[in-house]
């Protein structure tokens, strides 16, 4: 079930990467992505992807198979994006470009191949950083940290947490409505009406949730925190390390 993939085990929460403030991890991910936008080379994104994976496995105690499962669809997507961008690149039609190979009517140039592979590498970097972030970050801690350290509005943050927790419920609703159609003798596994049904149920669930939160005085004034989140030396270490690694990645000669 989806729920299992959303839940972290205790060793991961207690790992060094699990203890870094979620806001700091989020900032690192964003800074890395911005940094990668300044280069089209292949090595920097691959280097950062490798760093993220090693850190996830070693400092984040993510079990290897879990990380492999979480990133597998994105690896496939990266390959597909790389191939399609290589094959359909405008550079292939440029007579001045250096020809790499031709497959039947398709001519592939070196420029197109370099751009395609570069793009695939960036997708891989984004996927690995994102996977390591989500596999080492407890959703409750992320929300607490967003509210306390990044001053995000509690209404938005806790609303998002509630919606996030409802994801498995939407899956169940879809399955039930499909079964309801079948047992009423209706054909077609993926009728568009199903989407309307799931949407209606999601909105009603959201309404009830909002009602329950209001009844518990949510948003009625200043709030305190049961789990105060403060800054630790580990946040500083992580930030400095992340910046150094980004600089190294961008500085490596090709």
């Amino acid at each position: 079930m989806i729920a299992d993939r959303l839940e972290l085990d205790e060793p991961r929460l207690a790992s060094p990467l699990g203890r870094v403030s979620p806001v700091v991890k989020l900032a690192i991910a964003l800074v890395w992505l911005v940094g990668l936008a300044f280069t089209t080379r292949i090595l920097p994104p691959l280097f950062l992807a490798l760093v993220a994976m090693v850190a996830g496995l070693w400092l984040g105690r993510i079990p290897g198979p879990t990380l492999a499962r979480a990133t597998a669809p994105l690896w496939i997507a990266a390959v597909l994006i790389g191939v399609s961008n290589t094959v359909f690149a405008a550079a292939n039609g440029d007579p001045a470009a250096a020809e790499l190979l031709t497959i039947g009517p398709i001519r592939i140039t070196t420029e197109a191949a370099v751009a395609g592979v570069g793009l695939a590498c960036r997708v891989i970097a984004i996927a690995s950083v994102g996977a390591v972030f989500s596999l080492t970050t407890d959703p409750t801690r992320l929300v607490d940290s967003l509210v306390q350290q990044a001053r995000v509005s509690p209404r938005f943050a806790y609303g998002a947490l509630a919606a996030y927790q409802a994801i498995p419920r939407f899956g169940q609703d879809l399955a039930t409505l499909r079964q309801a159609r079948r047992v009423r003798g209706l054909r077609g596994g993926w009728h568009p009406g199903l989407l309307v049904g799931v949407l209606v149920l999601a909105i009603r669930h959201g309404d009830r949730m909002a009602l329950a939160m209001d009844a518990r005085a949510f948003g009625s004034g200043p709030r305190t925190f049961y789990r105060p989140i403060g800054w630790h030396w580990i946040d500083l270490v992580a930030s400095v390390a992340a910046v150094v690694l980004l600089v190294v990645a961008l500085a490596v000669p090709t």
Binding site: Y158, R208, M209, A212, R216
Partner: peptide, 30 residues
């Protein structure tokens, strides 16, 4: 208030956090 459907009145992911939710909203000291 307590309603019928447990799934749509529990806000936080963990048991103690959910009990704390209403207290945080009323600004109870930790």
């Amino acid at each position: 208030m307590v309603w019928q459907d447990p799934d749509s009145q529990l806000v936080m992911e963990r048991v103690e956090d959910d009990v704390a939710f209403g207290l945080e909203n009323r600004a109870w000291p930790r």
